[in-house]
Amino acid sequence: MNRDRSADARAHGGGHGEAACRDCGSWAVTADGFCGACGLRQPGGDEHAEAQLVVDGRPALGAGISDPGLRRVHNEDAFALAALPRGACAVVCDGVATAPGSREAARAAAQTASGVLLDRIGAGADPDEATRQAVRRAGEAVAALSGGMGGAGGGPGPACTFVSAVVAAGRVTVGWLGDSRAYWLSAADSYPLTTDDSWAVQAVARGEATAAAARADRRAHMLTAWLGADAGAFDAHLAAFEPDGPGLVLVCSDGLWNDLPDAAALASVALGGPDGEAREDGPLGAARRLVRAALDAGGHDNVTVVVIEFPPPDPTREPGR
């Protein structure tokens, strides 16, 4: 077989680091992004996004990746990540695929919300209050998008999920609507920080189905709350806690947790493999390992992962490793 050539194709893949064609599976994607077997152009650079924060000239504190996954052409997820005076904040939004304009909705919501969080917390506001405002303003931004298209034809207006995390001053504050999640991941203990607004979760809560039956139900992913013009007046859910040791705050879309719902499993991926195995340090390394795991599990949906370190690196201490 032709392993050398495959390796070359990957090495020269430009934005297509994993040069397996998403359509036909051939290891033949050329530098200009077309598959050398089936000819289809692979999703371009604007479908895949990476960002990381820099502290004292070094990448640290937080990193995020959004990827279209292996089965979808477009990425309707969006994220925002920003440094705060003593920490960082992140927002992940997942556009509802069945509603046109949802990709723009997710981007507008994530950008608007992170802007509000930066402003309010920078001005000394309480993270709970800042989060409530961020969700409200994000909802308004999404509703504004349907100005031209809502109503006409009666189809659904643009809509998206919302999850935010503020990691600052020894405290983690999360807010959410829909089924994007936040997790606390650490070597000692890992658990979800959010509860999905989905049919499956509600059915279990009402005692109508077991967790396994609910997950298998075709309605499992139906949202019971979201951001959008026709979403009604949902109040965002809020939760806060103060970790007692170091760890990672993960915010993500369902493209990650669908295949890896278990917090402990996510922690072991994010925190790295066994000792001695070469691995990339820092939040970007953790984010990459998580996205890789989602793709390895099938990459059925868009995958978005943002990781924030806790506690934030202390700039007053010597900048050791």
């Binding site: 077989m1 032709n2 050539r5 495959s6 194709a9 397996a20 036909c24 599976g25 051939s26 290891w27 033949a28 050329t30 050398g36 077997a37």
Partner: peptide, 8 residues
Amino acid sequence: TPPDEAGS
């Protein structure tokens, strides 16, 4: 001569 093997 684009690579023709079907990978993965």
